[in-house]
Design a protein around this nucleic acid. Structure first.
Lengths: 138, 138
DNA sequence: AATCATTTAAGAATGATTCTAATATAAAAA
DNA sequence: TTTTTATATTAGAATCATTCTTAAATGATT
């Protein structure tokens, strides 16, 4: 967390209360929240916080490489882990689960002569928990 | 194309003029069009065609496994190639380019105990053509 | 030909995100 | 410290893609 703040400072980013609040909330979150979800939670502590500011901050943090963005359906979700990894969306329990696989494209930043700057890989299916539940029920 | 139609028939899908038009248009397209783009083009030949029908048809074709859907930004694009592959979105020329890489998850349909039914992988970056143009300009 | 189910059209409704303009805050200069 | 300037925030309006709704049309079935 502190290193994230350090890096942002060095990039000349103004660290306002709003920005720090979003960054900290996301840092302690593991549920891949949407901008709206972040806004709803933070509003309890900062009633004046605007949804637009949350969106602006998330975009800024993404540009700075401190967070990851992933689109599920037509909604953006945010992930504090900046290290590149993939996700699985379970169509039964609706959870978004981190998936770490060895991806050559992610490592090299290249594929078939193209330069890759960002990777968004989402697997749609059924998570291991739900699979077990299904099998147990049979 | 004919085999696609055959498979759909066998699934009991009613092949209306609208559905065949969408399927055929997409089959001869290589630009990963949006629902709106498909609608705009087909309206010239079928002025009564509704955008909702295009959406419905695309959803049906996706469910039937005849086409692929991919989300770029907040817009869905459609791809006639049903065989699983990935895409690169070039932030300079804005093109969506097919990328074929050997992906173990796509092949096995499994990752870390989870069952994978669909894969949506989009690489964001700069395509080889634009890279060359950039280097040439230096 | 009559009945029933499915599909379509057109536009309204929705939901997520972005834009706008005024205000507030922070940084820089005097 | 005050003034100036630039940047960030707020609140709500606007936008855009997509989905929903309802009535009419079409296709399949009896």
């Amino acid at each position: 967390m502190d290193t994230k703040i350090e890096r942002l400072k060095q990039k000349g980013v103004v660290l306002t209360i709003q920005r720090l609040a979003v960054l900290e909330f996301l840092y302690h979150s593991s549920s891949h929240p949407t901008a709206e979800a972040i806004h709803t939670k933070l509003k309890k502590k900062y009633p004046m916080l605007s949804l637009a500011t949350v969106y602006n901050t998330l975009e800024m943090l993404k540009q700075a490489g401190e967070i990851q963005e992933l689109t599920i359906g037509n909604t953006k979700h945010f992930d504090p882990i900046s290290k590149s990894h993939h996700h699985l969306y379970c169509r039964l329990c609706k959870r978004i689960i981190d998936v770490e696989i060895s991806c050559p494209v992610c490592k090299s930043g290249r594929v078939q002569g193209h330069k890759v700057e960002e990777v968004q890989a989402v697997f749609y299916g059924i998570c291991s928990d739900c699979l077990q539940r299904e099998n147990g029920a049979k």
